[in-house]
Design a protein around this nucleic acid. Structure first.
Lengths: 223, 223
DNA sequence: TTATTTAAAATAATCGATTTTTTACACATA
DNA sequence: TATGTGTAAAAAATCGATTATTTTAAATAA
């Protein structure tokens, strides 16, 4: 019995420590620019040095850490410029992927989409269940573009999502914002099911832009 | 005195063993699908186990290796579908990057471009100097898109280039093909200098397509 | 005081050995 | 013959300790 659904492609199978660290980095548990104390991590996550270092190396290659020559690992800085960059690329790549998904997606995809949207809408978003909601939200966006036919495009989108979330998750999710996003999620499904690629792409870009504005406000509040 | 020009962004600073392995993987020194024998690698590259494993982990995160749960590392398979995917994305992303580079590039960029093209054209391409030519070729394409303003776009382009080269380098570079590509390189510089973004993008896509056809032929000859 | 040098401490990277897991093969059973 | 089980060999992953490097602090000189 698998704990995970097998990923669409050769995504490196991940270790528990990799998953935990990745999640904590995306959630903003470490300060931007912070230097990671390896011994402290070892103790905190209760792992040996070797698995820890291998996870850190993978995260550096993935872009969630900076590796400095013989000076260990550091959490990347945040910047307005990078946030703009990430948002712009997300619009471009997810827009592209959605258009292709609408072209290639079959009836199974349609059902998956409806299910993902329903689960997300139903999800409790009280503070102790944020993780659950975040997971379903990620899952929804993943489902939306899944049948685009490009393994590499999906990979890049995933990576940008993680980077974007470093900014978006600087503050707590506000119910009113969530409501607005949920409405867009619903409309995205409708446009996808009606195979209106142009309108769906436009809405996707607007959707990302809205998230971008939330993320930007939070970033500015922090800086 | 630095051996490398510092990279535009937080690209993980790489170790000698990482560089060597990456190069050998891109050059096709390992068969597609091959399982890597760690002890053999250790001996061949004359490195310890720890640095080797860390390099392998980074390469897996980068997409040049597949990491299987407790079953070590494997060279990814090649497929027609993936080659098509990579070529398509390269056209899209490098086209986009070139348009932006033409919008943002300054006089220094213009000079760098001319220099990169000149060095590439002058380069000897005899069999023992292939590495030199390949390096200058990479450098030329890098220079072309460098001022696009998007760190992440550049990162993805670099990654796709490496993946593409796994197919392109299945066979030796033929002088006639090189001649044709050099001519396109020259025209790309001309269009870039004249700031004709539309035409430059179109030519870039045609240029990638031509490389794609070469790579496809080589892939089919191998399979 | 400010800069530079030196020494000590802290931390990162590496190594060699151990433990765990997988794979291959022989044998037994249906 | 096909299928399953047990054992031995191989390989990967991990651990504990060592080595090398960087950082910090103190001391000396300008």
């Amino acid at each position: 019995m698998n704990k995970h659904i097998s990923l669409p492609t050769g995504t490196a199978s991940s270790s528990p420590i990799y998953d935990a660290l990745r999640k904590d980095l995306v959630d903003g548990r470490f300060a931007a620019g912070e230097k990671l104390a390896i011994n402290a991590l070892k103790e905190h996550y209760q792992v040996g040095l070797s698995p820890l270092r291998e996870a850190l190396n993978k995260l550096a290659a993935y872009g969630l850490l900076i590796q400095e020559n013989q000076r260990g690992f550091r959490v990347p800085q945040l910047s307005r410029e990078e946030l703009d960059d990430i948002a712009r690329l997300r619009k471009e790549l997810e827009g592209m992927a959605l258009e292709q998904a609408i072209a290639y997606g079959d009836a199974v995809w349609e059902a998956d989409l409806l299910a993902a949207e329903h689960r997300l809408k139903r999800a409790d978003m009280s503070l102790d269940k944020i993780d659950e909601w975040e997971h379903l939200h990620t899952q929804f966006h993943r489902t939306l573009v899944a049948p685009c036919g490009s393994v590499w495009l999906l990979r890049f989108i995933e990576q940008l999502h993680d980077q974007f979330d470093r900014y978006r998750r600087l503050g707590p999710t506000i119910p009113a914002v969530r409501q607005a996003l949920d409405e867009q999620h619903h409309q995205l499904v409708e446009l996808a099911l009606s195979r209106d690629a142009g309108a769906a792409r436009a809405l996707m870009e607007a959707h990302i832009h809205q998230s971008y504005e939330v993320a930007l406000a939070r970033y500015q509040a922090h800086a």
